[in-house]
Amino acid sequence: MGVGMSHLLQAKIEQHYQDIQVSACIGKAELRDYLQNNEVDFIISTVELEKVGIPYITISPLLEAKDKDKLNTFLTEMENHQQAGRKEKVLTQLVRGDLVHLHVDKEHPFQVIEMLGNVLYEKGFVRKDFIHSALLRERKSSTSIGGSIAIPHGSPTMVNRSAIAIALLKEPLDWGNEQVSIVFMLAITTGDPKLNRHAVGQIVGYSETPSFIQSLKESKNVKEFLEKLK
C-alpha cells in the first residue's frame, strides 16, 4: 500500500505498543537486503511475504480493532516461543563439563550429595555449609522425583553463583522409595527463582521420558552426555 501508509502503521504501533522497537519502515523490494545486514525478531507487514525465514504478520496499516487482536495474539505466541527457548537453554547455562561426573561408584545417597557438594564448593559456586544444608534437606525427605532421577539441593542463601552438578551413577542406588541413576544437584541463588523453576521443570520433563534417560545413562564420556543434555 506504499511506504507512506506503512509509516502511518509505524506511528500507530509506536503509540499503542511502546515495548516494540521498530527497526525500520521499508518497501518489500528492500526487505531481502535489509535482513542480510540487520537482525530483527519479526516483521509486521501490510502485504503478504514469501520465504522471509523469520516470523511475520500481515495487518492493515489502519490498525483497526481486528488488527490489534490479531497482532496481540501474534505477540503472545512470540513471547511464549521465546520463553520456551529460554527454558530449553537453562541446563546448558548451569552445567559445565567439570561439574559432570560419570560412572560414580557410591553406596549411599549421602555420599553422592557430599561428593557433588564438594565439587560445587571447590569451584567456588557454594559455601562450605551448603553441603551440610543439602544433607539435612535430604534427611527430612527424599529428593528422588521418579524416572531414575534425584535433585538434592541446599539452601539458596549459601550459593555464590548458580550451577548444577551431575553424577551419573555406575549402579542405581536406593534413594528414598525409588532407584536413582542420575543425580542433579541444584545450587541456585535466591536471586534466580525463575531459573530454579525452569531448571526443575526441565529435569522433571527428562524424568517422564524413559528413552531419554536411558540415552543419558549410555553416555561414554562427559562431552557426549552434555551434547545429549542440550
Rank of each mutant, 00 (worst) to 15 (best):
E64C: 09
E64G: 15
A65Q: 15
K66I: 07
D67L: 01
K68M: 12
D69K: 15
D69L: 13
K70T: 03
N72L: 10
T73N: 09
F74Q: 12
T76M: 09
M78S: 06
A84P: 00
G85V: 02
G85A: 07
K87P: 02
K89C: 03
K89Q: 11
Q93W: 06
Q93D: 15
L94Q: 04
G97C: 07
G97R: 12
G97K: 11
L99S: 07
L99G: 01
L99N: 09
H101Q: 09
H101N: 12
D105R: 09
K106S: 07
F110G: 03
F110C: 05
V112E: 04
V112A: 09
N118Y: 03
K123C: 04
R127S: 00
K128G: 01
D129S: 13
D129G: 02
F130P: 03
F130N: 02
I131P: 10
I131N: 03
L135M: 10
R137M: 01
E138V: 13
S141G: 05
S141Q: 11
S142D: 03
S142V: 12
S142T: 14
T143V: 09
T143N: 08
S144Y: 05
G146P: 04
G147D: 03
G147L: 15
G147I: 08
I149E: 10
I149K: 01
A150S: 12
A150N: 06
I151P: 02
H153R: 15
G154H: 12
S155F: 03
S155G: 00
S155Q: 15
M158G: 00
N160G: 05
N160E: 09
N160P: 01
A167L: 15
L169E: 01
K170D: 07
K170R: 14
P172C: 10
D174I: 09
G176Q: 04
N177P: 00
N177T: 09
